Amino acid sequence: MTRILPGILAMAVVVVASNILVQFLFGQWLTWGAFTYPIAYLVTDVMNRVYGVAAARRVVFIGFLVGVACSLVGTQIMGEFGPLVTWRIALGSGLAFLTAQLLDVAIFDRLRSGRWWRAPLASTLVGSSVDTAIFFFVAFSASLAVLEPGNDVAWANETLPLLGAGPAAPLWVSLAVADWMVKLSLAILALLPFRAIVGKLSPEVA
């Protein structure tokens, strides 16, 4: 446990910071949390490369527990329009994180013997895509209103041009696409710190 403590602490910081920063808008389609949350994949991939699958999964599960704790706290804090975190958002966030991160771990492990960049890039791209799809659909889709009947998500289902210029789609779809594009961009940029960190922690596998 001691050897992966830095990874655990890093994951906890990322999860807590993202839960706070998601409350602050960045432009029309994003929040600041969109730029911090993808770092979780970097943490998971470094742990996987240096310490193996079991260590990476342990870091993921601890990050999941931290995320659940943050969500539970958020449901008890009242903002201008109600709780900062609704139960649907809490459910979507937890389900998306755990599913996507474990998928990331599995894909990384399957590809670990290939070129150094293939495993972190492929696992993060797939994990991020699944994460985005699960979270936004569970948290905001009108078709899942039964999950929390008292939570009005009509605002998220208002039909608007996609990202302000594309075909008509529910607002939550534009939010999801914008979030997904940021994650994909950061997945590519994260290859540089991944290479540097792994090279420092375990030069023989860099």
Rank of each mutant, 00 (worst) to 15 (best):
P6N: 12
F64H: 06
L201W: 02
T75M: 15
A106I: 02
L186E: 08
E80T: 13
P38H: 08
S174Q: 06
S174P: 07
F136A: 09
A10R: 00
N151Y: 12
Y37H: 07
G92I: 04
L163R: 11
G150H: 06
V198R: 11
F108P: 00
L95C: 11
V182A: 04
S185G: 15
S71F: 08
R115K: 14
D131F: 03
C70R: 04
T99A: 14
V182C: 08
T75I: 11
A106C: 03
A178F: 09
N19C: 08
R115A: 13
G52E: 09
A100D: 10
P6R: 14
V177K: 03
D104Q: 10
L98N: 03
G94E: 00
E148M: 12
G33L: 03
W155V: 12
P161N: 02
L121T: 13
R110G: 02
V14M: 06
V15H: 02
G7V: 04
I77S: 08
L189N: 05
A196C: 04
F97K: 05
L30F: 10
L201Y: 05
G67D: 15
L171R: 15
I39R: 00
G33T: 07
I4Q: 11
Q23M: 11
M11L: 03
P120D: 10
A119M: 09
L95P: 03
L95D: 01
S143C: 07
A165L: 14
F24C: 04
F35G: 00
S185T: 15
N151A: 13
M47D: 06
G150C: 08
N151V: 11
D179S: 14
W172C: 05
K183A: 10
F97W: 12
F81W: 07
L95I: 14
T132L: 04
L201P: 08
S202N: 14
V15M: 13
S71I: 06
V60A: 09
A176F: 01
A178V: 04
L184G: 12
T124D: 12
V130R: 01
D131S: 04
E148W: 13
G199V: 10
V14R: 03
F24L: 15
A154W: 02
F140Y: 15
P161F: 11
I20E: 12
